[in-house]
C-alpha cells in the first residue's frame, strides 16, 4: 500500500515536472493525470495540492469546472454523442435515447461492467457527417439507430 502510494507520487511528480511545476499549468497537469488514470482520483488531486503548493480548494474548483474532467472512473470505451446543432437538427437526441436504452444507463453514467461511459459532446466539427457518435476516438458517421447494436457489439469484444 505504502509503496503503491510512493509510486503514485513519483508518477505525479513526473507529470508536474513536464510543466516545471508552474501553477498556471494546473489544467494541463490535470489533463495529463486524467490521461494516465482515465479520471481524476481524489487521492491524486490531494497530492496535486501538496506537491504544487496550491490550496486543495483551487484544485477542486478547476477539476469540477471543466467538462473534460471526470471525478469518477470512466468505462473502457467512452461513447460521445455529438450534440452540435447540425447533429441536433438531424435527430441526435434519438441516438442518445437509443444508446441509453441499449446500455441501460443515463447520459453521463458508466455501465456496471465498466465497459461503456455515455456522454454528450459539444460539436465535434464533423457536421458533414451528421449525426455522429464518437467511440474511443473513432467517428461513426451518418449513424442510424439500427446500426447501434452492431457497433456496440464490436466494442464489447
Amino acid at each position: 500500500m505504502e509503496t503503491a502510494r510512493t509510486d503514485e507520487r513519483t508518477k505525479l511528480r513526473e507529470i508536474i515536472a513536464r510543466y516545471h511545476g508552474e501553477k498556471s499549468s494546473l489544467i494541463a497537469i490535470l489533463q495529463d493525470i486524467q490521461e494516465a488514470y482515465n479520471y481524476l482520483p481524489v487521492a491524486i488531486l490531494k497530492m496535486v495540492g501538496q506537491e504544487m503548493d496550491i490550496p486543495l480548494m483551487r484544485v477542486y474548483e478547476v477539476a469540477t469546472f471543466y467538462n473534460a474532467f471526470s471525478l469518477t472512473p470512466r468505462g473502457k470505451n467512452v461513447v460521445e454523442v455529438c450534440a452540435g446543432t447540425a447533429c441536433h437538427v438531424k435527430g441526435a437526441i434519438n441516438l442518445l435515447e437509443n444508446l441509453e436504452r441499449e446500455l441501460e444507463i443515463k447520459c453521463g453514467e458508466t455501465t456496471k461492467d465498466e465497459t461503456f461511459t455515455l456522454e454528450q459532446v459539444r460539436c465535434l466539427g464533423c457536421c458533414s457527417l451528421a449525426p455522429v457518435v464518437r467511440i474511443d476516438g473513432n467517428i461513426h458517421a451518418y449513424l442510424t439507430q439500427q446500426q447501434i447494436p452492431d457497433i456496440l457489439r464490436n466494442y464489447r469484444k
Partner: peptide
C-alpha cells in the same frame, strides 16, 4: 499552446 478543458 494551452489546451482548453471543455468550457464554452
Amino acid at each position: 499552446i494551452s489546451k482548453g478543458a471543455g468550457a464554452f
